[in-house]
Amino acid sequence: MPKTLVSYPMYCAAPGAIDGFWRGLRRHLAAAGLTDVDADLTLPEDLPSHWTAPNLLLSQTCGYPLTHGLEGRVQIVGTPCYDAPGCEGPLYSSAFVVREGDPAETLADCRGRRVAFNSRDSQSGYNSLRRAVAPLAEGTPFFAAAIESGAHRRSMDLVRDDVADLAAIDCVSFALASDAGSTAGLRILGVSSSAPGLPLITAADAPPQTVARLRRAFSAACADPALSAHRAGMRLSGFEVLPLAAYRTILDMENDAIYAGYPDLA
């Protein structure tokens, strides 16, 4: 079997920040007794298969896949905390983004317009917006068109280019895009309700001592002064251990929209 795999596939940070943090985290993993780790981060093309690989040591997923297929197939290591508007401890929200100069003042003003979303299995890009729109839709179609973009940054491009009028963007993704100078021409119309952030996971059969070592290593990396610049580039500010039950919020948001007669954005 190949060495254990580690990836950080969910956020695009400043160049070098993730690799620099990984070098430090790998050092802390070794100090915690986890030495059989590939030197380089894995860049998975098929995330569902990667997340359930038997030799997965550490990765990050979205709360929606966690509650819709990964439960029982992975273990939660913990939830990173981020220093970004819309985050509070291990919780995060979505920014509802429109073009600068768009006359919309509230989400209700977007009725009959075009929405872009990254994917249907995204808490931040789809589920949070569906929940926010449900009471406004009153069981009827709300948007004139819903465009699946494949990525948050692509959704922002579609809004900026007047292909779509609105998108819900993970607040950490929006902050990192802002750091990169990629949010020009956009403004935040509002924010969604909060939910637990994107969890770190390990293989379902990882022994308790491995999970404990992962938590110790990641906590140490989050407190290591030598990694402060890399953490800043990632907007990473800490780490907390949340139970799986905390992610029930995501299912509640989905059920609220369905029970309101609004199962789909369009």
Rank of each mutant, 00 (worst) to 15 (best):
D102V: 02
L251R: 12
D109C: 00
Q75I: 06
E105I: 00
R187E: 00
D224Q: 12
I188D: 04
S94L: 00
Y126T: 11
C222I: 11
S173D: 13
A175V: 05
L41Y: 03
L242K: 08
G16C: 11
V241A: 12
A177E: 10
A184D: 15
A229I: 01
I147Q: 09
T52E: 02
G89F: 08
G16K: 13
L66P: 01
S49E: 13
A134E: 09
L214H: 09
L70C: 00
R99G: 04
R216T: 13
A257F: 01
G181H: 04
T183N: 04
G233V: 04
D157L: 13
S228A: 15
R114M: 03
D165Q: 10
N127P: 03
G101W: 03
Y259N: 14
M253A: 12
S192T: 11
F174C: 05
P54G: 11
P85A: 01
I169V: 15
D46F: 12
I258S: 07
T52L: 07
S7F: 00
P243N: 05
P225C: 07
L236K: 06
A13E: 11
G86K: 10
A84V: 01
A146S: 13
S124N: 12
V133T: 08
T61P: 07
P90G: 10
A31H: 10
V191Y: 13
L91V: 06
L136V: 09
T35Y: 02
E148N: 04
N127F: 00
P54F: 02
E254T: 14
F218P: 02
G197V: 08
A84R: 06
T183D: 07
L66C: 05
R153K: 15
E254K: 14
F21Y: 14
E254M: 10
D161W: 05
G86A: 08
A220Q: 01
V211M: 02
L236G: 08
A144W: 05
P2I: 06
S193W: 09
L242N: 08
P65K: 02
P80F: 11
R131C: 10
G125M: 04
A104K: 01
D40G: 05
V74W: 05
D264V: 15
P2W: 06
Y11I: 12
A146M: 05
R130Q: 08
D170A: 08
G89C: 00
M234V: 03
A226F: 01
Y64F: 15
D162I: 02
A145M: 05
C62V: 13
V97Y: 01
A145S: 13
Y82F: 15
S155F: 07
A232K: 12
G190W: 04
C171Q: 01
W51G: 00
L107Q: 02
